[in-house]
Design a protein around this nucleic acid. Sequence first.
DNA 1: TTGTTTATTGACATTTTTGTCAGTAGTATC
DNA 2: GATACTACTGACAAAAATGTCAATAAACAA
Lengths: 200, 200
Amino acid sequence: MSINNKPSPRIRRSPEESRSNILSAAESLLVEHGPQSLRLADVAKAAGVANATVLHHFGSIDAVQKALMERMIGDLVDSIMAIEVPADAPAAARAAGLKTLFDAFETRGAARLAAWLELTDETSRLTLVREAVQEVAQKKIANTGVPTEMAEELILLSVTLAVGVGLFGPSLSTLIGKPPERARELTLQMLLAYLQSLSA
Amino acid sequence: MSINNKPSPRIRRSPEESRSNILSAAESLLVEHGPQSLRLADVAKAAGVANATVLHHFGSIDAVQKALMERMIGDLVDSIMAIEVPADAPAAARAAGLKTLFDAFETRGAARLAAWLELTDETSRLTLVREAVQEVAQKKIANTGVPTEMAEELILLSVTLAVGVGLFGPSLSTLIGKPPERARELTLQMLLAYLQSLSA
DNA sequence: TTGTTTATTGACATTTTTGTCAGTAGTATC
DNA sequence: GATACTACTGACAAAAATGTCAATAAACAA
């Protein structure tokens, strides 16, 4: 029996492409199998490269995890910044903005990222998010006549609910026999009603 | 130089005590340093016993983690079951019940436990919680005249918010320069207002 | 073509973590 | 006491995970 030595065709990427490829693979692992699946061998395999390649680009598996946090935080910030809060803020527009916020945390791994950061005491990395939130508070809500102080608290409330629902909503809903999106629906319904009551 | 061979005084516990001691140490580690700190050597050290002792009682470090999940879930169920919802449910009593619920998730590690389960795809272990929730829904709320269907959804809403706020509330609050309990205050305030509006 | 650069890799070395085992030492019973 | 039982432990073995290094090969330039 002859062993098949296929010369294993190499793919040569630019450093940026390669890093991005590896981080994307790691992100999938994180979302699908949790943080403890971010092992060197697993990440390399998922990315379709050798272990040494991962280390060549990041130096250590720890650095991969840190870089992944940074990238996902960056994406999250982009999502937050993209939220539009019309100046006159009619109810429908406000609802759409909140829906976008909740989607940002539930689809893909933003909520899972947040849980990961929370469990590993890496919340300090969230300064970028903080700045984004405050920018939204100032530029996009302050000009509606709502005082900044209250705008910040409403954002705190909304973000807390969005990330919590994003992480736990689907599981808890199905746990008690409801469709997975039920917790989010209920939460959004309540949040909107509450915001409306504040306007009156 | 003579090496000091103190014979290292042994503590001999009953198997139950020993298991409990080890699980308590593990729980502290989980709450303070996250799931990835639940290594054999760390758990043993925190419990003040040898590595082999942990394995003697649990067989593997994995079994320790599973046992810890079970125990914390049991504690959580007890907390939920202890919630009293008076039959006539005056606003103040309802507020107290919800406060208890939120406390159950924030103090100590219930919310962190939930996040751990979520990230590791172990949500299937939550059947006990499910049963507790449904028992509360039936026995303690149904007799207030609220239909079971709605009671379950209100509990889903409350639990989702409680666990989300318990996990993320403190960090997010301090992140934007508020006292750590601010997110919980805001959430409870909204939730109570919403429940009251439903009664009208 | 020839040479330069460097992304890539397999083989190996190191470290970390987990698990095994035979012997030790508390506790209870006779 | 003496004996039995077993919780407990240190020393060691095994496995898993991370990291090193010299060689290879893809892209590009002269």
